[in-house]
């Protein structure tokens, strides 16, 4: 039961983008570590993430 609740909570966080930075850090560690570049700060990442999310048609009637 607790495990299931935790998964629902994770789903909510992922849907809303609440954990986007954590996922970005994981992605960065997995794919871009060797390039030697430091990951973006949370504020900087969130700025880019939000601006990108809002290009194109995102909402309907």
């Amino acid at each position: 039961m607790r495990k299931r609740l935790k998964r629902v909570w994770q789903g909510i966080r992922q849907l809303s983008g609440d954990d986007a930075y954590e996922r970005y850090l994981q992605h960065h560690a997995a794919h871009h570590q060797h390039e030697g570049s430091a990951p973006l700060s949370k504020a900087e990442f969130f700025k880019r993430w939000q601006d990108r999310l809002w290009s194109g048609i995102k909402r309907c009637c």
Partner: peptide
């Protein structure tokens, strides 16, 4: 709030 006060805390702000 989301952008400057607590960047990225989407659920909190919502």
């Amino acid at each position: 709030y989301m952008r400057h006060l607590r960047p990225g805390q989407v659920l909190e702000a919502s």
